[in-house]
Design a protein around this nucleic acid. Structure first.
Length: 644
RNA sequence: GCCGUUGUAGCUCAGUGGUAGAGCACUUCCUUGGUAAGGAAGAGGUCGUGAGUUCAAUUCUCAUCAACGGCUCCA
């Protein structure tokens, strides 16, 4: 007998060789029907795998993340079975579960897959799912597996096999499809009740753009139709919050073919948001001891050779303009210009920390396929600043920067974020990273310690650093689940030397400052794109392009509307009158759809009493108020940058 | 840059081998209406761009540009 410990802590005895499925059945038939896989001592395994020793067991169902991913991985096999049936010559690479669903990468030979084929494949999958075929595992010696795939002429699976050791190779078969697979899988195909193949895409073999491109089909499956319907509805809802759609509806920005790809034009409404953000940044940075500078958008080639950007990043920069034998580049970053400002006048330790800030305009030649709305563009405005400090000052400066991030997150109600400490990869020293192993080690420890000291939760990732030093990337998720690096905080132990920057210390000797690059509000482009999705277009009043709209019941009240407008304008409120010849219901509807925070309805009653009727966007009628009282409350809400 | 999809009025979208439609928006008129769409009339398009096939192309073919879904990339 073996002892099985269940998640509630209870211990039950079973015959050696019992499977997780046996144990589920002993608890209840209903549970057994829901079991997709099992977690045994922390490993996810087939529910049909015999247990021969005492173990901690968790039965995995659709409600568990591991249960879902097993379900989706098995669905990928089901899809492969369908592809094999329709395109028999197909060679398969890998088919993992992803965050929402699964994909399979395949080489279809000369065949092309269109979106119409997805419907055919879905139909086949449904057919095979109904057969309720079991996923059967078979372990195989390595040479036998090699023979099998050599005969099939399947170079992809042979490549996978080359990285596997004898004894860890298994095949899974369901219906007529057999695949090299580590597993685990769900018991049988019958639990896959609702299937949607979402898209067909190209994907480089092994993720390397030098390799052949395989065909990738994405899909998602559910154990019932209702959840699929809900998922599809959720996708529809997400589309409504897409910053590209909202940006158009709310007249925030536009793109124009004659201007160029990835070059957004900010419309007046976008201009207002930009001004408000810059006002916030300037106030915050001024209070934190930053000084503002202004620098040109171009510079000579030589500066980027000094900085080291050119050899590393020439591909991401616009090609140079050549004048009188000198090459000028549009800048892709502001750092070198700022270093030159530091260097313009001699510095003493008394001048440090030297903090200079600028909303710097940069141009990056992102590949056309990488462009994405406001999130990836070719012209960007960065909330940039550089801090030049001594080693002793580093920790407190770095912490102050992180505190600034947190302050901003509070204002914008960002509660889901991860600070990602991005480290170098020692294997790529001299190629992707400056070859200074000792300095990497030192600065990485300094940054890690600064994070620990300020109690900020963070994760560490290898091979994500900037070429000149480690960095902290702030990952955030928009309301519709998109993840991006919003902001960055980087240490630079390299540029100081490259630009021969120095200061005179207390002992009258020269030292090279450390440099912190930081951009808490990222770029206007990405940040406003994020805010559009975050607020679903319903900006807090302080950021809203139009803060209040005066809606007269009829044009008999236009004079009164004008006096209200003047009062609001005098108080610095962005307000307009809806003077169209429309009924109040229509005016309200249109203003609601434009997501204007306040609608001020005025008619005979209001005019006689010197009041306004207030309607808050999304919240309906709030009743009437004295004009003065409303304006002072509104001003307060705006000045405090209140969230809601 | 690569694979796939798409491109018709300001917006959302129908449609056709015989040079085009709807709703909303816009303009004018009627209406002066109390918290999410009052009525009428009008104006607006080289059917992304270029070439080919055809008596005839917005429609078919090719090229090109752009957008979208991915891959790669993201200082």
């Amino acid at each position: 007998m073996i002892k099985i410990t269940l998640p509630d802590g209870s211990v039950r005895e079973y015959a050696a060789g019992s499977t997780a499925m046996d144990i589920a059945k002993s608890i209840s038939e209903g549970l057994a029907r829901k079991v997709l896989a099992a977690n045994v001592n922390g490993d996810v395994v087939d529910a049909s795998q015999p247990l021969n020793e005492d173990a901690a067991l968790k039965l995995l169902t659709w409600d568990d993340a591991d249960g879902k991913s097993t379900f989706w991985h098995s669905s990928a096999h089901l899809m492969a079975e369908a592809v094999q049936a329709v395109f028999p010559q197909t060679k398969f690479w890998v088919g993992p579960a992803v965050d929402k669903g699964f994909y399979y990468d395949m080489d279809l030979g000369d065949a092309k897959l269109s979106e119409d084929d997805l419907l055919i494949l879905e139909k086949k999958m449904n057919e095979f799912a109904k057969q309720n075929n079991a996923y059967v595992k078979k372990s195989i010696p390595k040479d036998e597996a090699i023979n099998y795939f050599s005969e099939k002429g399947d170079e992809y699976k042979l490549d996978l096999l080359s990285n596997l050791k004898d004894g860890e190779i298994s095949f899974y078969t369901q219906g007529s499809f057999t695949d090299l697979c580590r597993g685990p899988h769900i018991p049988s195909t019958g639990t896959i009740k609702a299937i949607k193949l979402t898209s067909v895409a190209g994907a480089y073999w092994k993720g390397d753009e030098k390799n052949k491109q395989l065909t990738r089909v994405y899909g998602i499956t559910f154990p019932n139709q209702k959840e699929l319907d809900e998922y599809l509805l959720m996708l529809e809802e997400a589309k409504k919050r897409d910053h590209r759609k909202l940006g158009k509806e709310l007249s925030i920005f536009t793109m124009d073919d004659d201007v160029g790809q990835g070059l957004p034009l900010w419309l007046p409404n976008g201009g207002i948001i930009i001004e408000e953000l810059e006002k916030l940044a300037k106030e915050t940075e001024s209070a934190a001891g930053y000084k503002r500078v202004v620098t040109p958008h171009i510079a000579k080639e030589n500066m980027y050779l000094t900085s080291g950007h050119l050899p590393y990043y020439a591909d991401s920069m616009f090609p140079p303009m050549e004048l009188d034998g000198t090459k000028y580049y549009l800048r892709a970053m502001n750092c070198p210009h700022h270093h030159k400002i530091y260097d313009a006048e001699p510095k003493s330790y008394k001048d440090l920390p030297y903090r200079i800030a600028e909303y710097g305009t940069c141009y990056r030649y992102e590949q056309s396929g990488e462009l994405f709305g406001l999130m990836r563009v070719r012209c960007l405005h960065m909330n940039d600043a550089h801090i030049y400090c001594s080693k002793d000052q580093f920790a407190s400066e770095f912490r102050a920067v992180n505190d600034m991030y947190l302050k901003y997150f509070k204002i914008f109600g960002v509660d889901k974020y991860v600070m990602r400490l991005s480290l170098h990869d020692p294997a790529k020293l001299g190629q992707k990273y400056i070859n200074e192993p000792e300095l990497w080690h030192q600065t990485e420890s300094m940054v890690r310690q600064a994070l620990i000291d300020s109690n900020i939760p963070f994760i560490e990732v290898q091979d994500e650093a900037a070429f000149y030093g480690p960095k902290i990337d702030v990952q955030i998720w928009s309301a519709i689940g998109r993840e991006f690096t919003l902001a960055t905080n980087q240490v630079d132990f390299n540029s100081g030397n490259k630009f021969k920057l120095s200061y005179t210390n207390q002992h009258n000797t020269s030292e090279v400052p450390l440099i912190i690059h930081r951009a808490p509000l990222g770029t206007h482009e990405r940040f406003i794109g994020f805010l559009l999705e975050h607020y679903a277009g319903k900006f807090p009043t302080w950021l809203a392009p139009l803060q209040a709209k005066i809606l007269p019941i009829s044009d008999k009240f236009m004079d009164y509307a004008q006096t209200i407008l003047q009062t609001l304008k005098n108080a610095g409120v962005r307000a307009e009158i809806d003077d169209r010849n429309e009924k109040i219901g229509k005016k309200i509807r249109d203003t609601e759809l434009l997501k204007v925070p306040y609608m001020l309805v005025i008619g005979e009653k209001e005019m006689n009493e010197g009041k306004i009727s207030i309607r808050r966007q999304g919240k309906g009628d709030l009743g009437a108020k004295e004009v003065g009282e409303f304006v002072s409350e509104l001003s307060k809400e705006i000045n405090e940058r209140r969230g809601d």
